[in-house]
């Protein structure tokens, strides 16, 4: 118990003394996971919307695959991304392994099915009549899709939060594809694992607390936007 208090004290101390290493790690975590979430939104929302609106054979299978993808262990994603990015692997010529970009890539792969799954569910939940009405008013298909996404924006914000929360807290993929390199690919979660291994439990707890503080702040902002207007 004392250790936890010590860790919290340390977290506050590290933050308010602007410890350059901790600030660097925190900034990298936010940047990497933020970008990964951003990319996953493009792909995830598009994919979710297409699958929600289109009718094609094997659609159920695709939905099941997306829903399964929401629960794929990050470490499995990390393993596959590592193999692809190896120097002698299929994407080796990019020389991306052990770079922050590799972490963004892996995290985007993790977050995409989460975003796609929630988008799919929220677009599908919109009343069928709405679609017909929009089309009847003379909208093109593109305009209709845009309007539907706008209608579903509140649950879609939940997709953003779930995606971001999923990737900023994961460690397995980040440590595999990033390598936990000091000052370069060390993020809050991988640093926590390493400090635990070193027996520096107070610093490990402090890093955990910092992670929680930032995740909370970001979710609080997103929740604020989401709750500002109640869904009709």
């Amino acid at each position: 118990m004392e250790l936890i208090l010590e860790g919290i004290r340390k977290a506050i101390w590290l933050l308010f003394t602007f410890d350059p290493e901790v600030l660097g790690i925190t900034w990298l975590s936010l940047k990497v996971s933020g970008l990964a979430t951003f990319f996953s939104l493009f792909i995830g929302i598009s994919l979710g919307t297409v699958v929600a609106l289109a009718r094609f054979p094997g659609r159920r299978l695709v939905v099941s695959l997306i829903n399964t993808g929401m629960g794929v262990p990050p470490v499995v994603v990390g393993l596959f991304v590592t193999i692809f990015l190896w120097r002698n692997g299929p994407l080796g010529f990019f020389e991306l392994l052990y770079t922050p970009t590799a972490i963004i890539l892996a995290q985007a792969v993790i977050a995409t099915p989460i975003v796609a799954g929630i988008s799919l569910a929220s677009i599908q939940k919109l009343p069928e009549a709405l679609r017909l009405q929009i089309l009847a008013l003379g909208a093109t298909r593109i305009q209709m899709v845009r309007m539907l996404i706008r209608e579903a924006r509140l649950p879609l914000l939940a997709a953003v939060m779930a995606g971001f929360g999923g990737v900023i807290s994961e460690v397995g993929a980040s440590i595999m594809v990033g390598g936990n390199i000091k000052g370069y690919t060390r993020v809050l979660t991988t640093a926590t694992v390493m400090e635990t291994g070193k027996g520096n439990f107070d610093i490990a707890i402090a890093l955990g607390v910092i992670l929680l503080i930032f995740t909370f702040c970001i979710n609080a902002i997103l929740t604020g936007i989401q709750q500002r207007e109640r869904p009709r």
């Binding site: 493009f42 792909i43 990019f94 020389e95 991306l96 770079t99 970009t101 963004i104 890539l105």
Partner: peptide, 13 residues
Amino acid sequence: IMALFVAAILAGS
């Protein structure tokens, strides 16, 4: 989107 993605990868390395 794919173009953006590739651009991001290239920009990031």
